[in-house]
Amino acid sequence: MESPFKGKTGLRRVLNALVYSMDGLRAAYKNEDAFRQEVLLAVLMIPAACLLPVSMLGRALMVASVLLVLIVELLNSAIEAAVDRISLDHHRLSKRAKDIGSAAVFIALLNVVVVWSCVLIN
């Protein structure tokens, strides 16, 4: 069964998407400790990137690497919620899905370290 909102077009679709996105950000912030921690890091690191004496490209890479962590965390949280919606029972495939999502967040965090190190050392 398809969503009844799938057929919306134009400005109505854009407004619906904006509302759903804000709902998702609020839900993640309210329910996900890791997302709140990463938002705090972003609130500290993005202004720092803007104030540091680095090239515009370096600054863009630094900010993008931090935003990527938030994006990956949102996707990881969505995976976890979907898996938990299906069943809270322990299952090897549920564990695999959650572990892979967690690994994606870990790699995004490593990416921040690498990008910031490269920009600041250069």
Rank of each mutant, 00 (worst) to 15 (best):
S55P: 08
A60F: 10
K8Q: 12
E73T: 15
L52M: 15
G101R: 05
L41P: 01
V63Y: 05
V66M: 11
N76K: 14
G101S: 03
A27I: 02
A17V: 07
L18A: 14
I121D: 01
R12Q: 14
V119N: 01
A34M: 09
A103R: 07
A17G: 12
E2P: 15
V112C: 06
A64G: 11
G101W: 04
N31W: 03
A81V: 12
K98E: 01
R13L: 13
A103F: 12
M22A: 15
S87T: 13
L110D: 05
P53T: 08
E38P: 05
H90R: 13
L25W: 08
G7K: 13
T9V: 14
R36H: 03
M22T: 14
A104N: 10
K98L: 01
R85D: 12
L75E: 05
A28R: 11
T9Q: 14
H90E: 12
K6T: 11
M45Q: 12
S87Q: 03
S3E: 08
A34K: 10
M56A: 15
L51I: 11
D23M: 13
V115S: 00
L109H: 07
S55N: 07
M62Q: 10
I46V: 15
R92L: 12
Y29V: 00
V66N: 02
V114T: 07
P53D: 10
F35C: 01
L41S: 06
G10M: 04
M56Q: 12
P53N: 10
P4V: 09
L52V: 15
R26A: 13
V83W: 04
V63G: 04
A104I: 06
A42Y: 06
V113R: 01
R36G: 02
V14S: 13
E80H: 11
